[in-house]
Amino acid sequence: MSTATPEAAGASDVPIIEISNLNKWFGAFHVLRDINLSVAAQERVVICGPSGSGKSTLIRCINRLEDHQEGSIVVDGTPLTRNLKNIDLVRRDIGMVFQQFNLFPHLTILENCTLGPIWVRKMPRQAAEEIAKKFLDRVQILDQAAKYPGQLSGGQQQRAAIARALCMEPRVMLFDEPTSALDPEMIKEVLDVMTGLAESGMTMLIVSHEMGFAAQVADRMIFMDDGQIVEENTPDAFFNNPQSDRTKLFLSQILRH
């Protein structure tokens, strides 16, 4: 497999994720409707919207944690179909961070991080541990490497989860409400790590309600409601001059309290 680095991808207007006419149903419920979205390499896209609007489902489709019924998703040139090989290829390119961390509680933080490199990338243990330590250091929990997830605070666990995803050296990172399950005083440490990641040029798709963070790192804002993209805008325009009435209502509701 070619392991092109983000730098090698060259110009940042090359789309790395290309979603067209995506439709998805949960049983009879039409959860994603005619989604068209293309994300360029090194771009940071923040997706927000009320709960049930389909934003989590959308990013879960991108690494095939959910399958879709209509339309196409192409990641780094690989179309997502039932083909298991393609799914494996795409998942190697994409790291994901979950609301509930989803760390493996029976493994230490270090083992959580080396699992993918050893079993998926087939690296020798020592090399995997070096990579793991590098990224654990980057999210500033190297000193917790020998502990189990249950011994860490929520913020530390989420940073470990980010390190785990980074250890696969992905080209894209997906974040599914990464701070929603955290105590308020721990949100900042996770957002700081994510900001650092954004500054390093990582392509990021982030479902989040942290509007201050979004304004700071996003290249583009997407607002979803009822399974569709209602507004797509630059952060500046999105927050100061939203076009859709639905967006205005949403922003007024979450910003007012």
Binding site: L65, R91, R92, I94, Q100, L115, V120
Partner: peptide, 27 residues
Amino acid sequence: IPKGQIEGAQAVGLGYWQTMRLIVLPQ
């Protein structure tokens, strides 16, 4: 075992048998 464990393993890129052997069954 919460569904998130399987999703976490899938997101890391593990296949079905790897997920079962390394993540789900030990727990």
